[in-house]
């Protein structure tokens, strides 16, 4: 299931739809498992009072869902680094697509690795998350 260095070319991409019309309930599920009960993510009344149009998803939910695209691509237990910036908010109803692009295939401490650029966009094509990852490959 793991990727082979010899099969990878700079510019190769892998993309997945990571959520379809994100539900408020999914956001509540994430609050419950992560332990981040910030009312900005579940409490519309609080959130509007704080000056936002309504609740929005935890950045870490988008990072978690984007991580699923990554592990589906590079294989389980293969990531050595994964980092992101949250560049725009994710709202209930959003449909997100995450894409990884091969930036470099190289050797690190005698191990073949692939460096990936990551971007997750919403249904309007607006990036909500950008980042990078490194994974061990065969």
């Amino acid at each position: 299931m793991a990727l082979k260095a010899s099969d990878l070319k700079v510019g190769d991409t892998h993309s997945e739809e990571i959520c379809h019309e994100l539900s408020r309930t999914q956001i509540v599920m994430y609050a419950g498992t992560s332990g981040d009960y910030n009312p900005l993510h579940s409490d519309d009344m609080f959130t509007k009072n704080a000056g936002y149009p309504g609740v929005f998803a935890h950045g870490m939910l988008t990072m978690g869902m984007t991580g699923r695209m990554l592990t589906n691509y590079v294989g389980d237990g293969r990531l050595t680094k994964y980092g992101v910036r949250f560049v725009s908010q994710v709202w209930p109803g959003d449909t997100l697509t995450a894409e990884a692009t091969v930036k470099e295939v190289r050797e690190e401490d005698g191990q073949q690795v692939v460096d990936l650029d990551i971007v997750t966009k919403n249904q309007d094509g607006t990036p909500v998350l950008t980042g990078s990852a490194t994974a061990r490959v065969d």
Partner: peptide, 18 residues
Amino acid sequence: TEPGQIIAPPTFVQASAQ
């Protein structure tokens, strides 16, 4: 699978907040 057992997802340590 390659790890051979249940593992945690890449962002799981965020749940240390609990």
